[in-house]
């Protein structure tokens, strides 16, 4: 029941996208998000769609895994669509009843907003499904390295991130076990009013917190026992370096961004 969280879950496969340097994918996700809000009109939309379909095709992750990430934001999408639909002023009125007015511009806005949000989630899912959390933080650390010159603790932050990510599945599993253990003692997590249900969470949350602290303590001890002293002078087991295909990917990415901008400027 708790295992159905895909956002940030790696799907192992042997595709060119999986093999890319994580920095390329991070930057690519950023560029793609920007492009989604830059494009205007049907041609830009087509280009963004083709690019996304191309990515989905070559990354060899089943399509339903990407769509899974959409479930939690369905409500947000519905709200956005409804607000855009009813609250966009425009000349061409399609429907009018009381205070509700739907304009042609509103329909357009709502449709594009839905597309943008969907593509945003699916596009970033491509990144998270093809990159392990560790690769991601590695990439982030290297990409942000220059900031450490001005006193930003880049290494510490990325270490915290990778530890946090590493612990998510462990804590999910632990929650599952504690939940079952309490259910075996007759606990009920599904019935009752909101207050009753919140109260019923205590037998789950107390042991979970205790175990999280215990794990954190153990980990800190283990790191210290292995002489961890922070990022100063620490080398990597697999240092990141760009290869040919990474440059190729950058080229593709920039031509895509160029295309989107050109479509906006010239059409």
């Amino acid at each position: 029941m708790l295992r159905d969280i895909t956002l940030g879950q790696y799907y192992p496969a042997d595709s060119p996208v999986h093999k890319l340097d994580p920095r390329v994918k991070l930057f690519g996700a950023l560029v793609y998000i920007v492009s989604l809000f830059v494009f205007r009109g049907i041609f830009g939309f087509l280009l963004a769609t083709i690019f996304l379909l191309f990515l989905i095709k070559i990354c060899q992750v089943p399509f339903r895994f990407m769509v899974k990430g959409l479930k939690p934001i369905v409500i947000l999408m519905v709200f956005t669509a409804v607000f855009n639909l009813f609250l966009t002023p425009g000349k061409q009125v399609l429907f009018h009843y009381g205070i509700l007015t739907i304009t042609m511009e509103g329909v357009k806005n709502a449709a594009f907003m839905l597309v943008r949000l969907t593509y945003l989630i699916v596009g970033t899912s491509v990144m998270t499904l093809t990159t392990t959390p560790n690769q991601l933080t590695d990439g982030l650390e290297k990409a942000l390295k220059p900031l450490s010159k001005v006193g930003v603790p880049v290494h510490a932050v990325s270490m915290m991130m990778s530890i946090a990510l590493r612990f998510i599945p462990i804590l999910i599993e632990e929650t599952d076990i504690i939940m079952k253990a309490q259910m075996a003692r007759g606990a009920d997590f599904e019935e009752g009013s909101l207050i009753v249900r919140a109260k019923n969470m205590i037998p789950l949350l107390v042991p979970l917190f205790i175990s999280a602290f215990r794990r954190a303590d153990d980990l800190a001890m283990a790191m210290e026992a292995r002489c961890y002293e922070g990022g100063e002078g620490r080398s990597k087991m697999r240092p990141l370096s760009y290869r040919r295909m990474d440059y190729g990917a950058y080229l593709l990415l920039f031509s895509y961004l160029g295309g989107i901008i050109a479509l906006r400027v010239f059409l």
């Binding site: 504690i178 075996a184 003692r185 007759g186 205790i210």
Partner: peptide, 28 residues
């Protein structure tokens, strides 16, 4: 059924949560 077939999980001490031992045992 769960009360008639009691299941003690691995490391069952991880499920303790009450303020006293007595209260914890009363939970079931």
């Amino acid at each position: 059924l769960r009360t008639r077939v009691g299941l003690v999980f691995q490391y069952p001490e991880h499920q303790l949560f009450e303020t006293t031992i007595f209260n914890d045992v009363c939970f079931g």
